[in-house]
Amino acid sequence: MLNRFMQSRLRGLMVLAVILFSLPVFLSNPFHYELATQMAIIAGTVVGLNLLVGFAGQISLGHAGFFGLGAYFTGIMTGHYGWSAIPALVVGAILVGLIAWIVGRPILRLKGHYLSMATLAVGFIIAIIINNERQLTGGPDGMPVPVFDVFGWELSPFGTYSLFGIELNGSEAWYLFAAAVLLVAVWLAQNLIDSPIGRALRSVHGSEVAARVVGVNTARYKSLVFVISAVYASVMGGLYAHFQGFITPAVASFDFSIVLITMVVLGGMGSTMGVILGAVVLKLLPQILTHFQEMEAVMFGLILMLTMIFMPKGLLPTLQMAVSKRLKRRAGGQQ
């Protein structure tokens, strides 16, 4: 039984790997690669956010705050203080985790709309600080971020690299790196979900009362998942900063928080592959909608509303249900 379970877990991961690594066939120019790399990094963030929202059932409308903190911490440490990227990412993640723990303890006692309000406030406060501490962050104008490096070895979108004898340009190399990071992020998230800790987290969503009477310290688990999702955001924010080479307070903005939570809900709360799809769709949609020019916002709002009204469970779960229903009907027809 357990074997079968593991196989299904691995299958999802393998499908994702195949898609990620065969995607370059369809990517023809650096702009495509840039978009795909951004998608992978943001998808990684959303996979972490989904642990909090989809599995533990706790809303966060301020997650971009943690993404922004990660991005700016890395930017400041590598840019102003000459740190190497890896230690900056790691220390940043630890700090953001700590902040999330300190903030999370009191606010996670709140429920429903009060929790969304509190997380929104936390995100806003972070964004305002980033906007106003000009000496460190460059304020609203943003700041440049040095090239990503692994203790001296640099990964630049403008370099050339070779992997197993294949020549890669910088944007291709960055894409492969981001894809690999996403795979690891998904693997870790799946490991977490399918474990005693994961069950405890999901029980907080399923029935908090049941969780408590079987001995789950719900406050601790809520804090834990809040910290984990913040660390995900921090690391991905750091990578994003290096990839872009320039960051503005938009990475920590309320708008971006809303984009992140929308990706989760649109793709399918509680479905890891679903939220990745959500990230892809929401990142692609504006690209497609630019054809509508000034109608872009109207179309975007309309599509968002209609999708959520008619597929409240999100894209992937709704698709899966439709497919399994059809399969069942077909099986029924044959009998």
């Binding site: 929202v53 809303i59 649109l266 709360m269 309309l302 968002l304 959520m308 409240p312």
Partner: peptide
Amino acid sequence: ADVVTLIIITIG
């Protein structure tokens, strides 16, 4: 729909 879903609808 879920609470969050309704939030997203009104945001849309």
